[in-house]
Amino acid sequence: MLSGWSTRGGKTCLRCAGDTKSCWLKHGRKFCYTSHRRFLHKSDRMCKDKISFGGKLEWGEAPKLLSGMEMLQQLDGVLTEYKKEDLKKRRTELFDHDKHQFWKKKSIFLELPYWATNLVPHNLDIMHIEGNYCDNLLSTIMGFVGISKDNLNSRRDLEELGIKKPLHPIRKGSSLVLPPSSFTLS
């Protein structure tokens, strides 16, 4: 949020910017970010794995990481300081396909003399990421109902995407049953 980059929608990755590959999951009601295999080396076996990835190979190039100077050039003359009256106008233009429209405001950090040469201009809160990841992983492995990310909506999204066929919900009478997954402990 401090960087000024939009953290909502299908183009939230600062590194990929306008080249972010995402799709909307209808049942889970969230964005799914795809094409992550392009960051792997071309000889990696995952790039050739069609079975796990919906019958698709991926040979795309990883996006180039923008330097602080390139970010400043993108922002130069595009956005002004944050003003409440400009917010509504910016929201309508925010998800335009123009590469500059992913920025929602100019960060105050741009005024720092060393920001353009900073190697990590955008940092992640690792403590919260690790905490959320650990909670979600343990809840899914242990099969906690209501907390687990492995639920009916996620299975219906897998079915709609046409991947992981053994995990698709099975209709038994008037209800849907989730087949046990290989990663859930008994």
Rank of each mutant, 00 (worst) to 15 (best):
D125H: 14
I129K: 01
D86S: 11
L158W: 01
Q74K: 03
S181D: 13
K11W: 03
T34M: 12
K21E: 09
N132I: 09
L87Q: 09
G146L: 08
Y82P: 01
D135I: 12
S52H: 04
C23A: 14
N132K: 03
S182Q: 13
L158S: 04
E85D: 10
S3D: 00
K105I: 08
N153T: 12
W24C: 06
F39T: 07
G173R: 07
F95N: 12
V120D: 06
W5I: 03
K48V: 11
Y114S: 06
H27V: 03
D96C: 06
Q74F: 14
S6Y: 04
K30L: 06
M1S: 13
L65A: 13
L75S: 11
M71W: 08
N123H: 07
K21F: 04
E81Q: 14
S43K: 12
L185A: 10
C32P: 09
G28R: 04
K164E: 07
F31D: 00
S52Q: 15
E85C: 02
K89Q: 05
C23Q: 10
K11A: 03
S181L: 09
F53G: 03
R45Q: 05
Q73M: 05
C32D: 03
R15F: 13
S154R: 10
H97R: 15
L66R: 01
C16A: 02
D49G: 08
E81D: 12
W24P: 01
M69L: 15
L161W: 00
K26L: 13
I129L: 13
D157C: 08
M1P: 14
F102K: 00
H41S: 13
S181G: 15
K64H: 09
I147C: 07
L152C: 09
E70H: 05
W103Q: 03
L167V: 05
H97E: 15
K84A: 15
F144A: 09
T140I: 00
W24Q: 01
L167N: 10
F95D: 14
C16V: 06
T20A: 03
H168D: 02
Y82R: 10
T34N: 09
H168S: 02
I51R: 01
S3C: 01
G162Y: 00
L72E: 11
P169C: 04
L14F: 11
S186A: 12
P121M: 12
P169V: 04
V78S: 10
L138S: 07
T20N: 05
K149W: 11
W24M: 01
G54V: 07
K104E: 10
W5M: 03
S67E: 03
R156S: 09
G10E: 01
L124H: 10
L66P: 00
C23G: 07
G55Q: 01
K149C: 11
L94R: 14
T12V: 10
L65D: 14
K89F: 04
E85F: 05
A17I: 09
V78Q: 08
G143D: 14
K83M: 12
S22L: 03
K88H: 08
G146E: 07
H100Y: 06
S107F: 10
L158A: 01
